[in-house]
């Protein structure tokens, strides 16, 4: 067993366990905590795949920014626990089960029918080296310049929109 494989097993175990624990916890804060652990383990998995940039961005954006926002909302609004949501609307449970089964079936289909690792052409093999920051930067600012700039523009518009919406509420 290579070192890479051992690391993969450790991170995969943490990721899978924390994902299950995240769903089964009653308290929203504890669930969020396990989600953060899950993100950290995923970032470790990316590192074993040589995708350093995505690994670090995973931590900075998801664990460091988005989950902090989630936690703030949970802490300040103190949402009622899961049980009362389902008591108010019993049909929601069936919808949730349906969506869950559907997504799980999709993942199974990709793993067993799609077999993404079979079609590993030399071209794809080379793309493993794309994970470094230099390669990503070069691609973003040459080949994908226009999509990249449009995404940036969209984000700017969304930021301004959020600011205006927040201000409006204060004045009313």
């Amino acid at each position: 067993m290579s070192l890479n494989f051992i690391l993969f097993l450790i991170f995969a175990f943490i990721a899978a366990t924390s994902a299950v624990l995240m769903i089964t916890r009653k308290s929203a804060i504890i669930a969020a905590l396990f989600l953060i652990l899950n993100f950290a383990a995923l970032s470790g998995l990316y590192l074993t795949l040589n995708a350093q940039f995505i690994a670090v961005v995973q931590v900075i954006v998801y664990a460091g920014a988005i989950m902090v926002l989630f936690l703030f909302v949970i802490m300040l609004l103190r949402p009622s626990d899961e049980q009362s949501i389902f008591d108010d609307n019993p049909k929601l449970k069936w919808l949730a089960t349906f969506v869950g089964v559907l997504v799980f079936a999709q993942i199974l289909a990709i793993i067993f029918i799609g077999r993404p690792s079979d079609g590993l052409t030399p071209d794809l093999q080379r793309s493993i080296e794309v994970g470094t920051i230099e390669a990503i930067g070069r691609e973003l600012y040459t080949t994908y310049l226009i999509p990249f700039q449009s995404a940036a523009f969209l984000l700017l518009a969304a930021t301004i929109g959020a600011l205006i919406l927040a201000k409006k509420k204060l004045e009313d």
């Binding site: 961005v57 460091g64 902090v68």
Partner: peptide, 25 residues
């Protein structure tokens, strides 16, 4: 001596917020 050392520092400082948030909560 990693080639993304600065990003590593930024990632850790952004995670560092949790220690304080959790201790407060």
């Amino acid at each position: 001596d990693v080639n993304m050392g600065i990003l590593y520092i930024l990632a850790l400082t952004s995670v560092g917020v949790y220690a304080i948030t959790f201790s407060g909560w």
